[in-house]
Write a protein that binds this DNA or RNA. Structure first.
Lengths: 113, 113
DNA sequence: GGTGTATTAAACTCACAAGTTAAATAACCA
DNA sequence: TGGTTATTTAACTTGTGAGTTTAATACACC
């Protein structure tokens, strides 16, 4: 079963190191070594994270001498956002009242989950 | 290392079965059995998916006789969206030109990643 | 109290994700 | 050619996620 694009995107985002890498890349293109700098982690580990981001389409690599600069490509984030938008009404509108009600019901039934 | 809230939310979303469950729940509260209906998957598998969604705060359970109805709580989706919003400029604005340029550079350096 | 239905728990398998270290590749510099 | 830096590959360990089957629990109905 080949994974859905959203699977790949969301699971790429489900890691704090990778989100930090994206945050750094939002400031501009940079090298693997500089990306690795803030993390207490080996080089190969960063390479693997970059591969995950690349497979999700979130990072583009180029070549410059012995460096392979990384750049952000945010398009897949739009796909993620588009999916999430369908639920906006559920956190914005009065649908929240349903949820409050359900919290009550739940607390009657049991103390903790 | 305890996982970040965004870790938990994004990884809950990184599975097609769980996204389908959320889609179903956006139509209204329902039982585990009915949630399991569309999937070629055992009951316990669905229970586990529900636990993942519950831990992410996306699903709230209540009790009604021998049923444990599930309801959507979309608040964590707002957290996810808020994080993504910081990148909106990168897919909306002329930043895309950078990306087009990089595609060219990349295709000069190598054929495929 | 026993039976049927809904759901979860336990125990297990299998695959894969995330990290490691050591070695290989690639490109520059002398 | 050899040395240095940047990055990746290979091989491995460890943990965990997703699924299974079988058995237990919880509740309704009679």
């Amino acid at each position: 079963m080949t994974p859905d694009r959203l699977d790949t995107i969301f699971s790429a985002l489900a890691d704090p190191t990778r989100r930090a890498i994206l945050a750094r890349l939002s400031l501009g293109t940079t090298s693997v070594t500089e990306l690795a700098q803030p993390f207490d982690m080996s080089g190969p580990a960063i390479t693997k994270h970059l591969k995950v981001l690349e497979r999700a389409g979130l990072v583009i690599r180029s070549r410059e001498a012995q460096w392979r600069p990384c750049s952000l490509d945010a398009k897949p984030l739009k796909e993620a956002t588009d999916w999430l938008e369908r639920y906006r009404q559920f956190w914005e509108s009065s649908f929240d009242r349903l949820e409050d009600y359900l919290h009550e019901v739940q607390n009657n039934g049991e103390q903790d989950g």
